[in-house]
Amino acid sequence: MATFDLSAPESPEAVVAALRAAGPGGATPLAGGTDLLFDLDEGRVAPAHVLSLRRLPWRTLDWVAGALTVGSTLPLRALEDDPQVRTLYPGLYEAVRNVGSVALRQRATMGGNVVRSAPASDLIPILLALDAELDLFGPQGSRRLSVDRFVIGSRRTELRPDELVRSIRFPEPRPSAFCWQRVRPSNDISQVAVATAYSPSDRTWRVAVGGVQPRPRLLPEAARELTGPDPPPAAVGRAAAVAAARSPFVSDRRASEEYRRRLVASLVERAVGLTRPAPPRSA
């Protein structure tokens, strides 16, 4: 097993300073660790220092006029307990509560999921469909980047070596859904996952797909077939067919390309059907 020294700086500035002092590859931030620990165990990364983010004041969940900002180190489990997440961002709620298991979500974080950028991430599709935006903290202050621009490939992001993800912002409540197919419901990764959302402000749909290489992606060609909050069945069928034809699937140990193409069509139809306006806000 690799050896490393673990410390927990008290401020984001101190984490950034430690990252800079250690130089490239010398230090790694640790959020929940549910993904990073495997790389540490197997030596794919071998930093001398691991910097736990547990003392940063980022385990937060903030609402401003319906826009949701999730602190990067908030355990995913905490998101499930907020009733507004369920009603205003139903697709996000479904995606979060289907990550791993209850005991895994007590450690896992949204910041970690985005930074680790696994090609089979089950959160990135819904972040894409909801136009989520990251607040990045670095030595020059903060900058904002959409998830779509941040995630550039399998395990590759635009994060600079001395930057941290501070929060993930969801700009507006959207009817949304997340549908998946797995061998096992818990503690498994989807063979195909589909996230859909309808934006009431610009009256357009987003369709995102996971289980593709090199990273989850939006399918604007499929979304264009959908118009209005309640698209007719023929339009939904066309969107499903376009998703099946255009998704960059490959065969791997989880599923064949052919199986994924069949799956994605069903999942798009199901997800669009579940994407319905939120019930009126009450209580």
Binding site: G32, G33, T34, L37, S52, S101, V102, A103, Q106, R107
Partner: peptide, 16 residues
């Protein structure tokens, strides 16, 4: 249970 919450101890660093 870590502070009352079910947690995977195989993915939790003791120092954390």
């Amino acid at each position: 249970l870590v502070d009352g919450r079910a947690t995977l101890s195989c993915l939790t660093l003791t120092h954390d």
